[in-house]
Design a protein around this nucleic acid. Structure first.
Length: 197
DNA sequence: TGCCTGATTGCCT
DNA sequence: GGCAATCAGGCAA
């Protein structure tokens, strides 16, 4: 496999967030691989970020964020949705990046089977839909993204990534002045506003 | 296209 | 007890 190495994640979170755009998330569960190009993310800067789950310290739910970089943090919210994050920075610094949208790129038949009611560009457009399509839940919390059935790798072939944009995070009231949402302009799979930043 | 609302439950205060 | 890093459907325009 060609998963990004742990040192990729052990860097400043805002740098990692921007570099995740254009990379491919690959899930190799039972039934065959499903992969999608990351086109939208949000950074959460732990103790210095009032909007972060880790702002008020470690709990059973957010424990993964306090661990080593390069692992998954999967949380459950609104009584029905799961969201996938990537843990960054060194252990003890609870930073994470929420993966908000993927453009399906590998295993298209499986993507369509997961959500026959939606066009491909919308199947993983939004953090809840992303996890629903891949079948990710709390049992996948803590997976090692460098060596498990869930990895992130450089996109095979040419990376004709669109221009990067940034703006306020979606659904966040606190710290709205922090432009920690990043996305690729022109990608139809992006979940929220795609122009202004 | 855009605004509004119900669904549904784990978790923290 | 109340809210949450959301989604989908309904309705108005």
């Amino acid at each position: 496999m060609s998963a990004l190495p742990r040192r990729f994640y052990a860097r400043p979170t805002l740098v990692v967030a921007r570099e995740l755009l254009g990379k491919e998330l690959l899930w190799r569960g039972a039934g065959g691989p499903m992969g999608g190009v990351i086109v939208e993310v949000e950074a959460y800067l732990g103790a210095s970020d009032p909007a972060s789950h880790a702002y008020r310290g470690e709990t059973r739910r957010n424990r993964s964020m306090f661990g080593a970089p390069g692992h998954a943090y999967v949380y459950f919210t609104y009584g029905m949705h799961h969201c996938l994050n990537v843990v960054t920075e060194e252990a003890g610094t609870p930073h994470a990046i929420l993966l908000r949208a993927l453009a399906p790129s590998t295993g298209l038949a499986r993507w369509r089977a997961a959500r026959p009611d939606l066009p491909p560009a919308r199947i993983a457009s939004g953090p809840g839909r992303l996890c629903r399509a891949l079948g990710l839940d709390r049992s996948h919390d803590g997976l090692d993204l460098t060596r498990s059935e869930l990895i992130i790798r450089a996109r095979p072939g040419t990376a004709a990534a669109g221009e990067m944009r940034s703006g306020p995070r979606i659904g966040i009231r606190l710290a709205r002045e922090m432009p920690y949402r990043f996305w690729l302009a022109g990608e139809p799979a992006v979940s929220g506003p795609r122009e202004r930043g």
